[in-house]
Design a protein around this nucleic acid. Sequence first.
RNA 1: CGGGGCGUAGCGUAGCCCGGUUCAUCGCGCCUGCUUUGGGAGCAGGAGGUCGUAGGUUCGAAUCCUACCGCCCCGACCA
Length: 562
Amino acid sequence: MKLSKSFVPTLKEVPNDAVVASHVYMLRSGMIRMLSAGIYSFLPLGYKVIKKISQIIREEMDFIGGQEFHLPGLNPREIWEESNRVEAFGETMFHIKNRDYILAPTHEEIMTFHARNVVKSYKELPQIWYQIQTKFRNEARPRSGVIRGRQFLMKDSYSFDATWEGLDKSYELHDKAYRRIFDRCDLKYFIVGASSGAMGGTGSEEFMVQSDAGEDTVAYCKSCGYAANVEVAKSRINSIKYDEKSSELKEIYTPNVKSIDELCEYLKINESQCAKSRVYIHNEKPILVLMSGNDEVNEVKLEKILGGAVRPAHTEELKEITGADAGSIGPIGFKGRIISDNQLINANNMYSGANKNDFHIGGIDFKRDVIEIEYFDLRVVKSGEECPNCSCKLEVFSAIELGHIFKLGTKYSNSMGANFLDESGKENPLIMGSYGIGVERVMACFIEQHHDENGIIWDKTLAPFQIHLIGLNMKKQEVVDATEKIYSDFKTNGIDVLFDDRVDAQAGFKFKDADLLGMPIQIIVGDKKLKENKVEIKIRKTNERIEVIIDELQSKVKDLIS
RNA sequence: CGGGGCGUAGCGUAGCCCGGUUCAUCGCGCCUGCUUUGGGAGCAGGAGGUCGUAGGUUCGAAUCCUACCGCCCCGACCA
C-alpha cells in the first residue's frame, strides 16, 4: 500500500482526550477516530489489525469444532423478556424508540432461540456456535478509548451439551483455545479462576491483562498463578500477637487526633497497636467494623458476611450512633453489633476511639473488654503480602478483562424452553456455556504491552503490514526506481508492505511516522547507500540496523519474518 | 447518577479572574511558489472561526450570569 494514496491520518501531537497509551497511539497512528463517547470508527489501518485478530480467533474456534454464525444486532424485545434480561440489563441495554427492538448487548437469547425446537436429540450434541459481532451496551461511563465502549466487537461462543460432563469438556476446549489465541497474539495474560472465587458459581475463568488502564484490581501471585479480584482476594498475614500482660483500660486525652497516623504520632505507638473503627449501616442498623491499623475494609467481603448491602454511615449519623465524630469512634461503649477483622483476634493492649470527641482509649483487651465481638476476614489485600497458596509475595494491580469463559448451565434453556430428548426419551434442558473475547481489547492490550515513547511496536502476527518501506528522497529518480522495484518484489512474494512514497515529506518526518505506526521491519532506501547498491533494514523492536545488498534483500527479509 | 476539569480553525493552544484598538493569539497541519531531503526543514504568499448551543446582563460579551449540549478524569454501576 502506498502511503501517498492512503488514508492514514497520523497525528504529531497527543489529542486532548486520550490518556492511556493504547488510546493515544491508536489515535495518533490513524487507526481509529471517535464518533461519540465510547463509539469509534476503525480506519483502514486499524481495521487491518482487527481482521488479523478475528482471523486468529476464527482459526482457534474452528479448531475446537466451533461453527461461525452471524446474528443480528437488532433484536425483538420479547425474546429478551423470556429470560427476564430486559430488566436485568436495565439502563445498560439500548432500546429502539420507534419499534419494539433492542440492540443486543450479548447473544445468549438469540443462540438459545435458534437451538430450541431445532436441536432436539442428544445425538446432535454437543454443539459449539460462535460469532464475531458488534455488541451494544449503554455504558454509563465509556473510558480509555476502545477499552470500554458503548459499541464493541465481541467474539462470543455458546456450547450446548447433553450432560454436565459434556459441558466440562466444552469449557475445557474453550480454555485451551483461549490460551492459544492470546499466546498467538503475544499477550502476557493471567487467569482469574472460580477457584479463587471471583465469580462464584461452578465454573468461570477470566483472562486478564495487567494494565493501569484496567478497571479491575486483582491480586496475583507470580509463583503459583493464584489470581483473584481484590474484592475477594485473600492473603496470609500474621495476626497481632497477644502480649503476656493486659494493662488496664485508660482514657487518654487526644485533642484533634483523627487519623490512625495522627494517633500513632501523638502517642508514639505503632500502627499495629491501633484498632480502626468504621461504622456501616446494614438493614438500617449500625455495625461497628474494627480493622488493624490502616487496613481498608473490603465492603464486598463485608456484604457477603452480612448477607446484604451495606453503606458507610453518614457523618451526621455517626454522632447520633456513637456520640462522637469519625476519628474518635471505638468498641468500648459502642451499642450494636461489633465485628472485627481476623487480624485483631484476641488482641490486647490496643488503642481505639473512646466514642467521645478528642479522647481515645488505651489498654483494650478484645477478649476481656469487647465481649460479643465476631471475627471475619475483612481486609483489602495489599501488595507484598503472602499468597494464600504458596506463601510467595502477592502483587496487587489493575487489569483489563480480555476474555471470559463461563459455565451457564440451564439458565437460558430453562427460561426459554430449549430442551432435547436424551437416550431414554426424556426431555431435558440443554446445558450451556458462554464464552467471550473483546476483540478491540485484544488490540488495545497488545499496544499497552508493546510500545515505547515513539509509538507502537507490532509483532508480525498482528502488524497491519510486515514491512514499512521508506524512500527517503522521492525526488531522486534512483531512489524512486529502487523503491518501486523493492515494493513490487515484495508484492510478488506475497509480503504485505506499507510504502512511504511521499514526495514532499522529509526524512525525519518519515522516520517518526514509521516508528509511530510500528511495523516490525523498516526498510530505508536513501541515495547514499544506493550508490553502494545497499539499503538499510531497521528492526523496530530492537532498533537494530542491518545493511543489505539489494539483491539479498528479499531473502534476508524472508529470514527475518519467518 | 455524584464530584472535578474542559469546550477558541483539522490537531494542540493564548486570551477569560479584571468586558472595550493586542480581540480573535501562537505552533503544527493544509494550499501556492522557490529552496531543502538520513531523525518531525527554510523563506515568501494564502485559505480556514456562528470563540460548544440558547438565553440573559451591558452602550459593548470569547470574557460576567443562567440553562442546555458535548468530551475527559475520579467515583458509583458493570450479564
